Simulated scan of single mutants.
Amino acid sequence: MKSLGNIRRSFSPWSDPDARPMIAIRNVTKRFGEFTAVDDLSVDIHAREFFALLGASGCGKSTLLRMLAGFEAPNSGTIVLDGVDLAGIPPHRRPLNMMFQSYALFPHMSVADNVAFGLKQEKMAKGAIAERVGQMLKLVKLDRFAGRKPHQLSGGQRQRVALARALAKQPKVLLLDEPLGALDKKLREETQFELTDLQYDLGLTFVVVTHDQEEAMTMADRIAVMDAGRICQVATPAEVYEAPNSKFVADFIGSINLFDGEVASSQANRTVIAGPDGSVVAEDPIERSPGTSLCFAVRPEKIAVSHEPPAEGTNGIAGEVWDLAYLGDMTIFHVKLASGTVIKASMVNAARSSREVFTYHDRVWLSFSPDAGVVLER
């Protein structure tokens, strides 16, 4: 059996029909006046899962997170956490905590006092508070900075203080709203791996909201791609990338090339799609009716560029190099086809020198195998 991409860990309770989800969201709708932010949405999130809500601004992901936290109430539908309906339970009584993008640290308090704030509100014993704060700061590697104020820390360190404070009350679920948005690119990439390691070690359920595709792909066990208040697809990062269920998801996650056309023939797991630039053969388990409008979606890295036509059995389409960029580790090609469609291909520069040299306006062949992409109807 072929696997779609590599997996971070062998953990997939969502594939067990008898598994009970930690969070069960059923037919939830949230309106603000005439605007529907979340539209009849249902999804399950399992214990110990790192779950990402991914979408563009205004798609409803933050509203859904705020309903989980208790800062907003749904107009209809239910949210059940560990078997308990959350309707009417105020935020501070829910067994979850939320980490905001702004971190919301108290500037006049030390790092230790910031982490201890929620524990003091719960009237925990002083000795127990000191022990818990010490554990949390050690966990996020900030025990040496317990006496500092937030302004004396870097952005990454403030982010970890906010994380320690959110974890101090030992919630069943941690909600993270764009948690890495304030960090620079390099620090954000480093922190993504730190968060995944921390979540795995703690065995907690994390639900993160992000608009950053790479962030979701790096951290999450599963991703819910959202648009206009609805979930378009819920799947693992590899499944969302390699087997998107619609043109929207294919286009939203990474770069994609769409070869549009109509079914010329369909048999024996092969569909021939006739388009303006020639026919494309796609590996497709569904038998299609001739004349049906389809597209074959192929990622840039699955397409090879050559001066010579491809071998028999491989799709080949001729075009002209319209643009290219050498990025060191890879070269990006924009190839213009006869119809005017521009196809993006990427080539890994595994060697220091190249056997084939390309430049602007070269006539080239694009080639890709029938199983390089996915057939989409919508």
Rank of each mutant, 00 (worst) to 15 (best):
M1F: 03
F11H: 10
S12I: 00
W14S: 06
D16A: 08
D18N: 09
A19I: 14
R20W: 06
R20F: 02
I23V: 15
R26Y: 00
N27Y: 11
N27W: 10
V28Q: 09
F35S: 09
F35T: 13
V38P: 00
V38W: 03
D40C: 06
L41A: 05
L41I: 11
S42P: 02
A47S: 15
L53W: 03
A56E: 10
G60Y: 04
K61C: 07
T63M: 00
L68P: 00
L68M: 14
L68D: 08
F71E: 08
F71K: 08
A73E: 14
P74L: 11
N75Q: 12
N75T: 09
S76T: 13
G77T: 04
L86M: 14
G88H: 10
H92Q: 12
R93L: 06
R93V: 06
R93G: 08
R93I: 09
N97E: 12
F100H: 13
S102F: 01
V111W: 01
F117I: 14
K120P: 01
K120W: 04
V133Q: 13
V133P: 11
M136H: 09
D143H: 03
R148F: 07
R148A: 12
K149Q: 12
G155D: 11
Q159G: 01
R160M: 03
A162E: 01
A164I: 00
A164K: 01
A166W: 01
L167Y: 00
K169H: 05
P171A: 10
P171E: 10
V173R: 00
D184F: 02
K185P: 07
Q192K: 05
F193Q: 15
D197C: 12
G203Q: 13
L204N: 06
T205S: 15
T205G: 09
V208M: 15
V209M: 06
T210Q: 10
H211F: 11
D212T: 03
Q213Y: 02
E214T: 05
E214A: 12
A216T: 03
R222E: 05
M226F: 04
G229H: 02
Q233A: 14
V234C: 12
A235Y: 08
E239D: 07
V240N: 08
Y241W: 12
A250G: 09
D251A: 14
D251E: 07
I256P: 00
N257A: 06
F259W: 09
D260T: 08
D260I: 01
D260N: 13
A264P: 04
S265T: 13
S266Q: 05
S266D: 07
T271V: 02
A274T: 14
D277S: 03
E287K: 15
E287F: 05
T292K: 13
L294W: 06
V298W: 01
V298P: 02
R299F: 05
H307R: 03
P309R: 12
E312H: 15
T314F: 02
G316P: 00
G316E: 06
A318M: 08
G319K: 06
D323Y: 12
G328P: 00
D329E: 05
K336R: 15
K344C: 03
M347Y: 13
N349Q: 13
A351K: 13
T359E: 12
D362H: 10
D362L: 03
S367T: 09
S367F: 02
D371S: 14
D371F: 07
R378V: 11
R378I: 02
